[in-house]
Amino acid sequence: MTQTTSYQHQDFDPIVVADIGGTNARFAIVTHYCQQTRQFEIQHQITYPSADFQSFEAALTRFLSQLPIDRPKRACLAVAGPIKSQQVYLTNLGWHFGIAPLKEQMQFDELAVINDFAAFAYAAPYLDTKQNLIIKSGQPEPDANIAVMGPGTGFGAACLARDINGSAVMSCEAGHINLAPVTALDRQLLHALRSNLQHVSIESVFSGPGIARLYRAMAEVKGHTPMDLNASQISQLAPECEVCDATLTHFCDWMGSVAGDLALTFGALGGVYIGGGILPRMTDRLLSSRFIERFTEKGLMSQYVGQIPVTLVVQDNIPLIGAAACLHERRA
């Protein structure tokens, strides 16, 4: 897949990039960067089922052995798992590796391993605006902080912090912040959620499993007996089920408050980018919801967040672009 047009490329040392998740391991080579379009060129892309390999090293070795070009000397890997003390853990797969030993084994001169939402933050300045959806217009400040976030299997967030001295990505565990109620309905739902959860975090609601929790809480608040439904079934039944419909609408409404909170937390005057696997499948509902209103309802800081644009990212290959940007920024 090519991410650039035919402008003159600057000298560029190819980068092995990867997007490693519980289901798939995606690998590619970033071969060029185009200064005019601020786009990376991604080639030799291969996806393997993660379960086909006993270790990450085995998957990476397979990819490198199939390349029709000389093996690149630098690599950046985006992983959906924790990185602690230069050790990487992909618990759903039973994969674990050390960054330094992997660098030596694969004979890389340069190797970075980053969280998948850190990759999203690195990718933000390089996104193609034509491929994504503006949820809220605004007036972004050049070179100001950018926040990225999104509900999927869990809830992830990160910040690209920028000032006159350069930029850095701040990873965090924002998904485990206490979920704050704003409206009377929020408070009723939070009360219902607390009957089953000791700690109601952002991720408790804003994730795939969270939609089912929100549905059960909504049924309780509305006086209905909940069915045993997962997120996909809730979406399918929404056109004819009052509780399912109310659940998905309130998911989008409340997400606005959460996104506004994180925009304030990160000082994201450069914009907010929302990804994850859930909201791109419900764009019409998101656009017709109270997301924008709740994003900007911040009391004394309402004008501050009012100028921040919000973009729903549906563009492909975000982790691969972010992995390339991570190493590219080091040499910029």
Rank of each mutant, 00 (worst) to 15 (best):
A75R: 03
C76M: 05
A78S: 15
A78V: 09
G81Q: 07
G81I: 05
P82H: 02
I83P: 10
Q86K: 15
T91L: 13
N92T: 12
H96V: 07
H96S: 15
F97P: 11
L102H: 10
E104H: 08
F108L: 06
D109M: 03
E110D: 14
L111C: 13
I114M: 04
I114W: 02
N115P: 09
N115A: 09
D116W: 04
D116P: 05
A119L: 09
A119Q: 10
F120V: 03
F120I: 02
A121H: 04
Y122S: 01
Y126S: 01
L127Q: 13
L127K: 07
L133G: 01
L133D: 04
G138V: 10
Q139F: 05
P140Y: 03
P142Y: 02
D143L: 08
A144Y: 05
I146P: 06
A147Y: 01
G150N: 07
P151T: 07
G156E: 13
A157N: 12
C159S: 14
L160F: 05
A161F: 08
I164G: 09
G166F: 05
A168R: 14
C172V: 07
A174N: 12
G175C: 04
H176M: 09
N178M: 07
N178D: 15
N178S: 04
V182E: 12
T183W: 03
R187L: 11
R187W: 02
R187G: 02
A192L: 07
Q198E: 15
